[in-house]
Amino acid sequence: MSQIIVPVLLALVTSAIINNAVLMQFLGICPFLGVSKKMDSSIGMSAAVVFIMIISSAITYPIYKFILEPANIGFMSTLTFILVIATLTQFVELIIKKTSKGLYKSLGIYLPLIATNCIILGVVEENIKASSFGTAMLLTLGTGLGFALIMILFSSIIMHLETSNIPKPFKGVPIALITAGLLALAFSGFGYL
């Protein structure tokens, strides 16, 4: 049993914390700085990103392994993946519009942002190198959880900073960037575990 659980946990912890996409690879910085001012916005954006990320990874991995790679046109992967992500974003928006008013109210304005979010493309590009479909999905889930963790953590810090006495030149984006840098420094410590 532990032969299954240990690699799964290792893959999740590695992709979520040690090799965090936002703090270590600088992917998804736009929503990280732009949407993380309020807790509910952060949770909404994270949920939408994780959802699209998992589905797009589940579609792009077989497309690459069974169609693009055997046809020897692996260089077309970026274009294909962009098309998959854009199609998926439109599809998910359409389904949410038709089925759930509540979900559309909370996620609706974030859905178009996801199509231009580099973290999704970065993750699917990275995960095609995984040895199996299961590993790719685990790494995607871990990266998504890592993104959600950072968004929620950062929004709580920003909310706290808004009530703090900060010198005028550091207010707003400068203090957010300094905080992000310190957070990245702290997370880099996990790499030595």
């Binding site: 309020k38 359409l94 519009k97 008013k101």
Partner: peptide
């Protein structure tokens, strides 16, 4: 997607300027 009407009550979903203006993606 464009032709599908928005759900009732969601027509006036506003984008908060302070959330979006920090972003540098001009294509967004």
């Amino acid at each position: 997607n464009r032709r599908t009407p928005l759900p009732e009550g969601c027509e006036d979903l506003k984008i908060s300027t302070d959330k979006c203006l920090h972003c540098h993606n001009d294509a967004c």
